[in-house]
Amino acid sequence: MVMIKAIVRPEKVDNVLEELMAAGFPAVTKLSVHGRGKQRGIKIGNVVYDELPKELLLIAVKDSERDLVIKTIIRAARTGDKGAFGDGKIFVAPLEEAYTISSAIRELPDGRVEEVKL
């Protein structure tokens, strides 16, 4: 399993969520965040905006679904055909295990599922 963390433009987030849903990935956590990338913010006139609003999407998926989710996010979040500075970033990290609170089920990276003894 992997945790995909995608930082995207606020105006692109609805498109990304729609495309993920259409691709079969409805489970997403969305957070509003502020930050800057390599461009160090933007300057408009004499005003420098060094922290820009973005949306952070968290998606936990099986290793076999990783590439499909990443490609779906890139297609939906990219500005124009070639993209633009500030379109965002995707980070992928291994996920050791996941727990479903309501059912007390533990999911492991190898696909095993077990009930948590309470």
Rank of each mutant, 00 (worst) to 15 (best):
R40S: 04
V2Y: 12
L68N: 06
Y49G: 06
L108I: 11
V92A: 06
T100H: 14
R75P: 03
L52P: 12
F91D: 00
D81S: 10
G37T: 09
Y99C: 07
M3P: 09
D110V: 02
F85Q: 07
K117N: 08
T100R: 13
A98F: 01
A98P: 04
V16H: 02
G37W: 09
A23L: 05
E51P: 14
L57F: 01
P26R: 09
V13L: 03
P26Y: 10
L68S: 11
L95Q: 00
L57Y: 02
P53I: 06
F91V: 03
F91Y: 07
V28S: 06
V113K: 14
L58P: 09
I73H: 00
T72W: 03
I44H: 08
R78W: 04
Y99W: 11
Y99V: 14
G45S: 05
G83R: 11
L31A: 03
M1I: 11
I101L: 01
K43R: 15
L118D: 07
V8R: 01
V16R: 02
P109R: 05
P109K: 05
A93W: 03
I73S: 01
I74M: 13
D87Y: 11
L68F: 06
I105T: 14
G41C: 09
K54L: 00
L20P: 12
S32K: 10
Y49T: 07
L57T: 00
D81W: 08
E107T: 14
L58M: 13
G88I: 04
G83M: 14
L52F: 08
G41F: 12
V48D: 01
K62R: 14
Y99F: 11
I105W: 13
V13F: 05
D14R: 15
I7W: 03
T100A: 11
K30Y: 02
A27L: 11
D81G: 10
P26V: 10
T79S: 05
I44N: 08
A76V: 00
T100L: 10
D67K: 15
P10V: 01
I70V: 14
S64N: 07
E11D: 08
A27R: 13
D14P: 08
A23P: 12
L31W: 05
A23Y: 11
I59D: 02
R66P: 01
E19R: 12
I7Y: 12
I73L: 02
E51S: 15
D67V: 13
Y99R: 10
L95P: 01
L17D: 02
D87H: 12
P94Y: 12
M1G: 12
Q39E: 08
K71T: 05
E11M: 08
I7E: 01
T29W: 09
I101V: 05
E19N: 13
I59T: 04
E65A: 11
P10R: 03
D50A: 05
E107L: 15
A84K: 15
P109W: 03
E115S: 15
L57K: 01
L56Q: 10
A93Q: 03
S103R: 08
G111R: 09
